[in-house]
């Protein structure tokens, strides 16, 4: 089956900064794909390129086997995808019902019925003007609009922002349902715990580069957190064997924490035998720890990773091993 999204060597430069630096990515159909990254990592830029709002500086990008940078393709893509931007701007003078009626003109039959069902599910008053809705209610309207034409691919930029916990949970569960019907969900989010609950695949973007890409459950299994207690904070530790990939290192006084991909036990055993090491503890890494490690960890490893290719390729190798 063809990838729903296929990105190769994507670069995006703005005046004064590089938003994306050679990103490779592929999204399989029927998956919930989460793009994680801190503010300014380049998530929204990537989504804007995917939806045809922005033309990349370099690289290729295909969505549903079409090129979003081409004008004619971008319209077809928008017919088949549902997109919610990070801060959806709706016509605030329209009512909830009117905006659904208005948007239905752009899609095939059935939009209105699905939209009505959605707003009823979210308990949105159809005769209330959008300007009189709360922030969360507006987000629900935007989501309802994005879902109402039953899209093959949902592209959601921070979709749960502003939603209350209950609705957030309902929404994320509905994403699993969407994926179960063979549709694909591509979302960016800060809500790591929630993403952890629904995502099949994750990608962590940091300063325009993908730091980590892979199947979430496999990543969680292959990555461990090794905490080394030193007798002297000035003691330097050698790198473990080649089968253990250190993704990040966090120094806290006499403690060093390593995020290790593959061979965590071997690495722990290796450091235990080094001089100046008081004790070594190993535990499975959470997604949040992974995220922190990839975005806040020692930059020398990130640099090393970028030298060795890109993160996608690295993770694929890790998975194969």
């Amino acid at each position: 089956m063809n990838d729903v999204i296929k990105i190769e060597g994507l670069e995006m430069r703005f005046r004064g900064c590089e938003a994306l630096r050679g990103v490779d990515l592929s999204v399989q159909p029927g998956t919930v794909y989460a793009l994680l990254g801190e503010n300014g990592a380049g998530k929204t830029t990537m989504i804007r390129i995917l939806t045809g709002f922005q033309k990349p500086t370099a690289g290729t990008c295909r969505v549903l086997d079409m090129d979003p940078s081409k004008k004619e393709d971008s319209l077809k893509i928008r017919q088949r995808i549902g997109y919610v931007s990070d801060s959806p701007a709706l016509y605030d003078w329209m009512t909830v019902g009117e905006i659904g009626w208005f948007a239905s003109s752009f899609f095939a039959e059935g939009f209105v019925d699905r939209y009505r069902a959605s707003i009823e599910q979210y308990e949105l008053p159809s005769d209330r003007k959008i300007k009189n809705l709360s922030k969360g209610q507006r987000s629900k309207v935007a989501l309802s609009l994005a879902l109402a034409h039953d899209p093959e691919l949902l592209v959601l930029d921070e979709p749960t922002s502003g939603l209350d916990p209950l609705v957030r949970r309902e929404f994320l569960e509905s994403m699993i349902t969407v994926a179960a019907t063979g549709r694909t969900v591509f979302l960016s989010s800060h809500q790591i715990a929630e993403v952890e609950r629904v995502a099949d695949q994750i990608a962590i973007l940091h300063k325009g580069r993908l730091q980590l890409v892979g199947n979430l459950s496999e990543l969680k299994e292959s990555i461990s957190m090794v905490t080394v207690s030193l007798t002297d904070p000035l003691v330097s530790l050698p790198d473990p064997s080649a089968s253990s990939k250190i993704l990040a290192e966090i120094n806290e006084g006499r403690q060093k924490q390593f995020v290790v991909q593959g061979g965590g036990d071997e690495a722990a055993e290796f450091w235990k035998n080094c001089t100046g090491v008081a004790s070594v503890r190993i535990q499975p890494a959470t997604l949040e720890e992974l995220f922190v490690a990839c975005t806040r960890g020692d930059s020398k490893y990130a640099h090393r990773k970028s030298e060795s290719g890109n993160a996608g390729r690295l993770s694929m190798e890790a998975q194969r091993s």
Binding site: G52, T57, S69
Partner: peptide, 22 residues
């Protein structure tokens, strides 16, 4: 209304685009 075009490639020659921090 068209998609925003990327910055001109020559900007990178000037070194502007490579600056990640100002």
């Amino acid at each position: 209304l068209a998609a925003r075009t990327a910055s001109a490639p020559w900007l990178s020659l000037l070194g502007e685009s490579t600056k990640s921090t100002v």
